[in-house]
Design a binder for these strands. Structure first.
Length: 798
RNA sequence: GCCGGGGUGGCGGAAUAGGUAGACGCUACGGACUUAAAAUCCGUUGGGUGUUUCGCCCGUGCGGGUUCGAUUCCCGCCUCCGGCACCA
């Protein structure tokens, strides 16, 4: 008997797929499409490990499954190749990022081929290709024209190790998301994208998506919409006024002081001369503290300015303080403090001995323990006393509005996107600075603005990009007036290229547009997007923003890019995430060599529920390898002496179809594998032709090489992927025998096998024969029986 | 602190419109084949216990509750992992 030779089989079929261009897809309006997308990788120098495989296998199983169901499946792959590691390598080893990137891409591609996925490599995209980033720049210019890209000098997060500014989304607990270094605040003139303009639409769109709830929640809380009111406070003896944002206008009568953020422009203007020295010192210290230091020290600090605000509802004079617990970049950078009903204000008031006046009571009127931060009944609030505080929010806001001292207001936690990086290896921002004309966008016909070669990639660290040192490149002429001008030297963040790459796959070679409208219309949006959770609020939020903008300017006809999202879990080793630095990386190359790609594919699925982190076990793949050999041997053995199908084999066959289909649909891919194993364990030594063929088709998404070979051995022309996914016959799924559990007082004593339509009496008489049941019943009286046909018979005794 | 998700054998994990807990795989042990080993195949494998072809007790993080019956539902804890974190 010929034995299973994974190497020969996998080599043969990979060559066959390549020769026949089996995975090249074309737009075909007559066929339904399915767009199955992997988050494209950054081609790092360390290559793929088995954790990367997991998502790629998952999406390939789905792609092949959909293909077998008759869909025209787009399953592309490409490279998110701008980024810091290549640039850091360039600095360290003096290798041009273009060269190292090309090397890494070649290695990644080789490794991805090993998976045996049905990628259409004719559609490969690379964000660092000028033909690609031309369109990344084009989108930026469209945003610029529509007022969404602007330049502003402001304090931003700056990573001293990466030597570049960062977006808020790239700062995790005060540290750089990439390298873990504590970030600093730096005042830099930055390009910003007005993502906040889309805050509400980004929030509303989430409701329409088939995404993991966790990601939806994360985006919601990142956007952080709060409804409340702006309240205007006059300043005693001054023309200035302070606007504050509050979500609790109902507590306005309880405001006993106000706080300005140290950076607030009114601090210098309102501070009294007696307090000036103290305030200046406090502000100076606050500014030098890093964001982390400010966060780490939760102990409240602050200084009185000597000024007083006037409460618009009751004319009360309340002191104005400066404290760093108020953030400059949220709301107006100033608050009214209601210590009775806010934990932070309460703490501050206690420390500095400021008055605490309750204005919300329990619904029954009793004064609760303070701070009392939930809704209740209004007290100490003049005309609003007795009102429910929820209603009072509205009533007080309306009252302020009439007086012209306030209005309803909505605030978001999300800030505009800091979009420039002071680094070399990124898309140049296509803007020219002209002394006469100011900022001038590079005309579309001059795109792309390509990256020049440089001698030295070292970031300057001064907030200027290494590009600024390339005179030939920086010095240019103004597209408007033809006078001498300079190019913008900041580059775009790595996210820029990944915001829209999935559009380019639809039409990767288009020179006229980022993709043609009819191809976009056919292929997009993405039906299934597979990738890690780490992009929950970065890439996935930025992409949604880009697509909403492209929708607004008529480039695409949908405004959510990814209909369904699936986050695969990490693969861990020794309880930790695989990483080169921990030295716990499992290399797939050796496993493919030893067991074959099909075994590794199936083990990646079998390792655990796909959405959950899983622990890699080195000998787990052995079991899968044995299973594959059993399938192989079963087919070979059966072909020697094909039996006829029986009713039993037909029932098993249909049961397998139903189980596998249902479990793929619900993403329970680990249990799909066990369904196959159970089937192989129970069918016996040979199987009839139809059962074998069904088995091969059902297994094809998981083990494409093996099943192509078996399909051919069964006398078919390749490819098995031209076959049709079988359908289960509902009648064949009905079992004729069932096992019923016999319980006494809810405790299972035995099981009986009976006909599926057995009556309670049938089961009872069968059960009465069994020793354990007899024991449990002896000397007892049966007072009640519960019979669930096909499931249980429960005898309640006394 | 707030929000979200988990705790099931030696291990990875099955099973939740409440109905046989531990499928499937790994490990381990025993057996067959073999000169021997590997591979393969066949058993056993949650813990305890007895009068051992059979039976009994315990068991899904802990403590309660609802129910004929709870891994599944409810209440209260413990614990682990993620996200956010002075956002007014």
């Amino acid at each position: 008997m010929s034995s299973y030779n994974h190497k020969a089989i996998e080599t043969k079929w990979r060559a066959y797929w390549e020769k026949t261009q089996a995975h090249t897809v074309k737009m075909d309006p007559a066929k339904p499409k399915f767009y199955c997308l992997d988050m494209f990788p950054y081609p790092s120098g360390s290559g793929l490990h088995v954790g990367h495989w997991r998502g790629y296998v998952l999406s390939d199983v789905w792609s092949r499954y959909k293909r077998l169901q008759g869909y025209n499946v787009l399953h592309p792959m490409g490279w998110d190749a701008f980024g810091l590691p290549a640039e850091n390598d360039a600095i360290k080893k003096k290798i041009h990022p273009r060269v190292s990137t090309a090397n890494n891409v070649a290695n990644f591609k080789r490794q991805l081929h090993e998976i045996g996925a049905m990628y259409d490599w004719a559609r490969e995209v690379n964000t660092t290709d000028p033909d690609y980033y031309k369109w990344t720049q084009w989108i930026f210019l469209e945003m610029y024209k529509h007022g969404l890209a602007y330049r502003k000098e402001m304090p931003i997060n700056f990573c001293p190790s990466c030597q570049t500014g960062l977006a808020n989304e790239e700062v995790v607990q005060g540290a750089c998301e990439r390298c873990g270094t504590q970030v600093e605040k730096r005042n830099l003139k930055q390009w910003m994208l007005k993502i906040t303009k889309y805050a509400d639409r980004l929030l509303d769109g989430l409701k329409t998506l088939d995404w993991p709830e966790k990601v939806v929640k994360m985006q919601e809380s990142w956007i952080g919409r709060s409804e409340g009111a702006d309240v205007v406070f006059a300043i005693d003896g001054s023309d200035h006024q302070i606007t504050v944002f509050t979500t609790r206008p109902d507590t306005l009568f309880g405001a006993t002081y106000m706080v300005l953020a140290p950076e607030h422009e009114l601090v210098a203007k309102v501070t009294s001369s007696e307090q000036a020295a103290e305030v200046e010192e406090y502000v100076r210290q606050a500014m030098t503290k890093s964001a982390v230091e400010r966060m780490a020290n939760k102990e409240k600090t602050g200084v009185f300015t000597g000024a007083y605000g006037i409460n618009p509802v009751n004319g009360q004079r309340i002191p104005i303080w400066v404290s760093d617990y108020v953030l400059i970049d949220y709301g107006s950078g100033a608050i009214m403090a209601v210590p009775a009903h806010d934990e932070r204000d309460f703490e501050f008031a206690q420390k500095f001995d400021l008055p605490i006046i309750p204005v919300i009571a329990e619904p029954d009127g009793t004064i609760p323990e303070l701070p009392f931060v939930i809704n209740g009944k209004m007290i100490n609030s003049g005309a609003f006393d007795g009102m429910d505080s929820e209603q009072a929010k509205k009533a007080i806001t309306e009252h302020l509005q009439k007086k012209g001292q306030g209005k309803a207001s909505v605030q978001y936690k999300m800030r505009d996107w800091v979009f420039s990086r002071q680094r070399y290896w990124g898309e140049p921002i296509p803007i020219v600075h002209c002394p006469e004309c100011g900022e001038v966008p590079v005309p579309e016909d001059q795109l792309p603005v390509t990256l020049p070669d440089v001698e030295n990639y070292q970031p300057t660290g001064t907030g200027e990009s290494p590009l600024s040192a390339i005179g030939d490149w920086v010095n240019t002429t103004c597209p408007k007036c033809n006078g001498a001008a300079k190019r913008e030297t900041n580059t775009m963040p790595q996210w820029a290229g990944s915001c829209w790459y999935f559009l380019r796959y639809a039409d990767p070679d288009n020179n006229e547009a980022l993709a043609s409208p009819d191809k976009l219309k056919y292929w997009l949006p993405v039906d299934l997007y597979v990738g890690g959770i780490e992009h929950a609020v970065l890439h996935l939020l930025y992409s949604r923003f880009y697509i909403k903008f492209l929708y607004d300017i008529g480039v695409v006809d949908f405004d959510e890019p990814f209909i369904r999202l699936f986050n695969q879990g990490m693969v861990c080793k020794d309880g930790a995430k695989m990483s080169k630095s921990k030295g716990n990386v499992v290399n797939p190359d050796e496993l493919v060599e030893h067991y074959g790609a099909d075994s590794l594919r199936i083990y990646e699925l079998f390792i655990g529920p796909p959405e959950v982190d899983s622990e890699w076990m080195d000998n787990g793949i052995e079991g899968v390898y044995r299973f594959i050999q059993r399938v192989w041997n079963l087919v070979v053995r059966s072909l020697n002496d094909l039996p006829e199908p029986t009713l039993a084999s037909e029932k098993m066959r249909h049961r397998l179809i139903a189980t596998v289909t249902e479990r793929i649909e619900s993403f329970k891919l680990n249990t799909v594998v066990s369904a196959f194993m159970e089937y192989i364990n129970q069918v016996g030594s040979t199987l009839d032709r139809q059962s074998l063929e069904t088995l091969v088709i059902l297994l094809a998404p998981l083990a494409p090489h093996l099943t192509e070979e078996l399909w051919q051995m069964l006398g078919h022309k390749p490819s098995v992927f031209d076959a049709q996914w079988p359908k289960a016959d509902a009648e064949m799924l009905v079992a004729d025998q069932v096992t019923v559990a016999v319980q006494v007082n809810g405790k299972t004593r035995a099981t009986v096998d009976v006909a599926v339509d057995a009556s309670e009496t049938d089961v009872m008489s069968a059960a009465a024969e069994i020793t354990s049941v007899k024991n449990a019943l002896s000397g007892k009286e049966v007072i009640k029986t519960i019979y669930v046909p096909g499931k249980i018979l429960n005898l309640v005794v006394r």
